[in-house]
Amino acid sequence: MLSVENLVVRYGPIEAVKGISFEVREGEIVSLLGPNGAGKTSTLAALMGLTTPQSGEVRLSGETIYGQGTARIVQRGMTLSPEGRRVFPRLSVEKNLLLGGMIRKDWRNPAVLERMYKRFPILAERRNQLAGTLSGGEQQMLAIARALMASPKMLLLDEPSLGIAPKIVAENFELIEQLRDEGMTILLVEQNVFQSLSISDRAYVLENGRIAASGNSMDMLNSELVRHSYLGVSDPMEAA
């Protein structure tokens, strides 16, 4: 579905992503893990065409999307729920959702909204409220729902559990699994290593802009190295 080769992202003299390669196959959840400043957000920004391209090759369903404008990439079927949620605070919940589905020909179709409200009843309750007045967890839900409104085939999630109450974090992970079960392909960026590995199929660990480890999520969950360096615990059950 998504393949990335030798992606380089640079901010002036700083090379944030130093030529990484990875792929996400259709129907998979792939985790992109790593500490703060590893280059995860920069990678997603480059995939979405938000940062000016440096070098590399990015393909979505076999077609090159590298260097194309963000609007084009969204049209091709890839959307991002950005880090820190970034809902439009001074617009209503409903307008935020409408914006997410803006590229659709039937963007005003109430059926599309209703389907989303059915999945997220709390958003239906708050549909006329300004998005800025929602709680952090609700805003995160809104950000994911907004990214789903365009009916993407490839969904990018940047730290959906950042700064959110543990109960909602668990719900979020359930939602992500559920989306995969419905056929969505997902690239999940997280610092919540244990839970991400638990729901994902495969994982890559990014460190200082390079891929430091990769493999089957289950294997990584059980590997001593990953447990020590990235989970920071010896027993993964403790982390849960």
Binding site: M48, G49, L50, G69, T70, A71, V74, Q75, T79, L80, P82, R86, F88, P89, R90, L91, L99, G100, M102, I103, R146, A147, A150
Partner: peptide, 10 residues
């Protein structure tokens, strides 16, 4: 309201 996120909406 948000230049980058507006782009993300297509």
């Amino acid at each position: 309201q948000d230049f980058d996120v507006a782009k993300l909406m297509g």
